[in-house]
């Protein structure tokens, strides 16, 4: 396995995702002789994982079972150890498309943070592209290097431990795209411009506060970027539920059952409400929004160097 190439069977040294159900999952490093504890009991790597197919159901010691999944940047994002606040797949998806990334793209990123976006970028630019990522925090930079190695993508990424606002990306005139997720992106716009190819490229800056966006946009304009555009993307997830609503008693149930006749004529029909007179309810399927949802992650400002 690697994060840029699917494999069929689980091998020693792989990073695998243990899926326990209902978004409950975690990442494990597969190693001979190692055991992993779950609420369903123990998983023994040598016998339960190695050599099995990805997507298999693995029975744990207490009889419960889990699924073992092939890692992807998206699953990694949901399971990685946080060293910083991270970007999630919803923002990542629009960043990737708006930066026009594809196999062969050269990308500069700062900061590396916990490597959530980095893994997605590497996946997209592989096998011929490259990611230059800059992180000013030494331990974070080292940890990221270690993860890239473990995930089989080290050849596609260069981690530099320096301050992007002072020292830039360490490369010039080679990038197709630049991504900034730092507290003061306006201080790095000049460096971003020189990292981009002379012929041009795309830039994106992620900021939680509008004041940061304001300063960034001014800096982008000052450095001659065009097509400056700020947007925000929000994810809404729906739970699929069968809902039962009580039929109100208007005192006429005995005589008027026309609605029940109408509904029972086709009770198996999907999606249409189904009346159940005995229980006095109407049932239907609904996509119910979650009680609490993410209302804001950050503003994304895109621009073009041409």
């Amino acid at each position: 396995m690697s994060f840029v190439e699917y494999g069929d069977t689980i091998k020693d040294g792989d990073t695998a995702i243990v899926f326990l159900g209902h978004e409950s999952m975690f990442a494990v490093k597969v190693q001979h002789g190692t055991v992993t504890q779950t609420k369903y009991g123990v998983i023994r790597h040598s016998t339960d994982l190695i050599g099995k197919k990805y997507g298999s159901k693995v029975t744990c010691s207490k009889g419960g079972w889990v699924f073992i999944l092939h890692p992807t940047p998206e699953l990694w994002t949901m399971n990685l150890p946080h060293r910083t606040q991270i970007l999630y797949s919803t923002d990542i998806s629009i960043i990737t498309m708006m930066l026009e990334l594809k196999p062969g793209s050269i990308v500069c990123e700062s900061g590396t943070g916990s490597g959530s976006l980095s893994h997605a970028l590497i996946r997209t630019v592989a096998p011929t592209g490259h990611l230059y990522t800059v992180e000013f925090h030494q331990q974070r930079a080292e940890k990221a290097r270690e993860e890239f190695r473990e995930h089989g993508v080290e050849h596609l990424v260069t981690v530099t431990n320096q301050d992007v606002c002072k020292n830039g990306f360490g490369v010039s005139n080679i990038a197709d795209a630049v991504f900034l997720d730092i507290p003061s992106p306006w201080e790095a716009i000049g460096h971003a411009k020189s990292a981009l190819k002379a012929e041009g490229g795309r830039i994106c800056s992620f900021s939680p506060c509008i004041e940061q966006v304001q300063r960034t946009c001014l800096a982008m304009e000052e450095y001659g970027f065009t097509e400056i555009n700020t947007l925000e993307i929000l994810l809404r997830v729906y739970n699929v539920r069968t809902i039962s609503l009580q039929i109100p008693d208007l005192g006429e149930a005995a005589e008027d059952n026309s609605s029940a006749v109408f509904d029972s004529s086709n009770p198996s029909h999907q999606g249409s409400p189904c009346a159940n007179l005995q229980q006095g309810t109407v049932q239907f399927k609904s996509g119910v929004p979650l009680r609490e949802v993410v209302g804001h992650t950050g503003y994304l400002t895109f621009a073009t160097k041409s």
């Binding site: 947007l231 993307i233 699929v240 609904s286």
Partner: peptide, 29 residues
């Protein structure tokens, strides 16, 4: 997609089913 969800759950062989939508908001800065 609600129907897909139900049918897939009956069929099995899939996990982590998620029904979603994104909202997009553009800004004048």
């Amino acid at each position: 997609l609600l129907e897909c969800y139900t049918k897939l759950r009956e069929r099995g062989g899939v996990i982590n089913l998620k029904l979603s939508e994104t909202w997009l908001r553009n800004y004048q800065v």
